[in-house]
């Protein structure tokens, strides 16, 4: 059995407002090495909070979060930042590329804070870009690229630090269906090569690609035990549930 990359034990995140908001309630979640997990839920469900906690951008108020076995609640900001730099790769809905820098330079940003040697940084960045199929766009600037290409650059950036966990937040949210499909195929490919992936989405098609599905609603996380999409008999029920939830989410947005 593979070792756990992520272990959440009774993780609670409360925001100090009046009245206090419990965005995440006593959550237990384990993501093992090589898992492909989708986290689904409507807006306001605590999805973003879970993402931020998983990405070490936010700390739980209670509970224990172990990343690669390291209890992150014991760490100071420098070490938490160091973990972000070396063990977590982020992919965002809006790509977050710097428009004044080439694709290669954008990917090279990922190693800025990780403390790896400068010498081969460019070579590693180009290797990552080739891995996501952008070997021909190394020196292109983001404004001249399509949405799909930009998201590939972002994925290459997340991969270049060779993270333990790839955290994707609505990775296809700004893309059309065809491009989305290509990006999801890339995720499948990365999953097959052994990468641990957590995708946060409200898109049913995206969540169905994952091998495990976790639902979150009102801060409560439940693992969906429904079988993967290969089992067509159960799928429509799941679809209906998800579509209802995403509709609610859209209204809130």
């Amino acid at each position: 059995m593979t070792s756990p990359v992520v272990e959440l034990e009774g993780v609670t995140r409360t925001f100090d407002s009046t009245p206090p908001v419990e965005a995440l309630k006593s959550t237990n979640l384990t993501i093992s090495s090589g898992d492909y997990v989708s986290i689904v839920g409507p807006s306001g469900s605590g999805k973003s909070t879970l993402l931020n906690v998983l990405g070490l951008l936010d700390s739980p108020t209670e509970g224990v979060y172990r990343l690669d076995g390291t209890d992150t609640s014991q760490l100071g900001e420098r070490r938490r930042a160091g973990l972000r730099a070396t063990r977590i790769g982020f992919v965002f809905q809006s790509f977050h590329l710097l428009s004044h820098r080439t694709a290669t330079e954008n990917v090279m940003l990922a190693e800025l804070y990780g403390g790896r040697d400068r010498k081969n940084r460019k070579a590693r960045a180009q290797e990552s870009l080739e891995k996501v199929g952008l070997g021909h766009r190394l020196d292109a600037f983001p404004p001249t690229m399509s949405g799909g290409e930009r998201q590939r650059v972002a994925i290459a950036r997340a991969l270049t630090a060779e993270p333990s966990l790839l955290l994707a937040d609505e990775p296809t949210g700004n893309l059309d269906t065809v491009t989305s499909e290509a990006i999801l195929e890339l995720f499948d490919e990365l999953h097959r090569s052994g990468l641990t992936i957590a995708v946060i989405t409200h898109d049913v098609d995206v969540s169905l690609r994952a091998q495990r599905r976790v639902r979150i609603r009102d801060g409560v996380v439940t693992e969906d035990t429904l079988p993967a999409k290969a089992d067509t008999g159960q799928r429509s029920e799941w679809d209906a549930l998800m579509e209802r939830e995403s509709a609610t989410g859209d209204e809130l947005e």
Partner: peptide, 12 residues
């Protein structure tokens, strides 16, 4: 946005 990205990439 860039600041957020840098923080995510591991900047303190």
């Amino acid at each position: 946005g860039e600041i957020g990205l840098r923080r995510a990439l591991g900047a303190t």
